[in-house]
């Protein structure tokens, strides 16, 4: 009996989390503009999604921004974590407290405060994309730091010392010994940064150029408008993103499983 109770809870919550996305994915393959009224099978939503210049530009822009932000965040955050790890306790503590601010802060406040500082006070130009990249990096880097730090703590420090003793210079020792050991943390930091940037609405609204749209700002504007074609093309986008996320997560899990297995063997 207890087992049944467990299964029921698990499956009910899973249904709540997945049914909306699955139903929307199903309807994205029909010509229907409303859920519930099934019409013929159609891929017109996917055609619109990948031919409409406005949508293509938005997807390309969002993805480019996410990758740029993630690369900058990984460089800053990894170097920051390695540096902080070997710094005095007081300095490391200070970095850790500052690092915690964007993590616990509301995105609205993070976005608004950076906007006040850079746009209102320093009169920077939003159209250069620089404020947007800086602000999203300020949100993402702390998470990279948090992904890398545990790996540094797990690392065997004597390997670095051994490299130095064997005549390696510090820069190479870092590249050849430290970086490979913390690589899993860097990879998950990169993935986290990409998702945070793709998910972000508030920082983008306060700091993006007026003509530029990310997925989030675009979807919110589209729900206000009445363009049915665009609305249902966004269903297709949900489906595409859902499949992409499942593929990435499954791929990462299988790889992690294989690595674990090989270690055990």
């Amino acid at each position: 009996m207890k087992k049944y109770g467990q299964h029921i809870i698990i499956w009910l919550v899973l249904a709540f989390l997945y049914l909306p996305i699955l139903i929307l994915t199903f309807y994205s393959f029909t010509g229907s503009a409303m859920i519930g009224s099934v019409r013929e099978f159609s891929v017109k939503n996917y055609v619109t999604l990948f031919t409409e210049p406005e949508l293509l530009e938005m997807m390309f822009g969002t993805l480019s921004l996410a990758i740029i932000v993630a690369v900058v965040s990984v460089l800053l955050g990894t170097a920051g974590a390695v540096g902080a790890f070997y710094s005095r306790k007081g300095i490391r503590r200070t970095i850790e407290i500052f690092n915690e601010v964007p993590v616990v802060n509301a995105d609205v406040v993070t976005g608004f405060s950076i906007c006040i500082f850079m746009i209102v006070l320093l009169h920077m130009d939003k159209d250069t994309y620089i404020p947007l990249v800086i602000a999203q990096t300020a949100l993402c880097t702390p998470f990279v730091y948090l992904c890398v730090m545990p790996r540094l703590k797990m690392m065997d420090n004597s390997l670095y010392e051994a490299a130095l003793d064997l005549g390696c210079d510090p820069v190479h020792a870092l590249k050849k010994v430290v970086i490979p050991q913390i690589m899993p943390g860097i990879v998950s930091g990169f993935m986290t940064a990409v998702t945070l940037s793709l998910d972000d609405y508030f920082i983008a609204t306060y700091l993006k150029p007026a003509t530029f749209d990310t997925i989030s700002t675009y979807v919110v504007n589209a729900t206000r408008g009445a363009q049915t074609d665009i609305k249902t093309a966004l269903w297709a986008l949900s489906a595409v993103m859902f499949v992409a996320v499942v593929a990435v997560v499954a791929g990462a899990n299988i790889r992690a499983g294989k690595e674990e297995g090989s270690v055990r063997v």
Partner: peptide, 18 residues
Amino acid sequence: VLPMWINFTLRITALKEI
């Protein structure tokens, strides 16, 4: 936790349609 990785405005659009 997988749904967390899908853009939240798209997920809410899905729930909203339902």
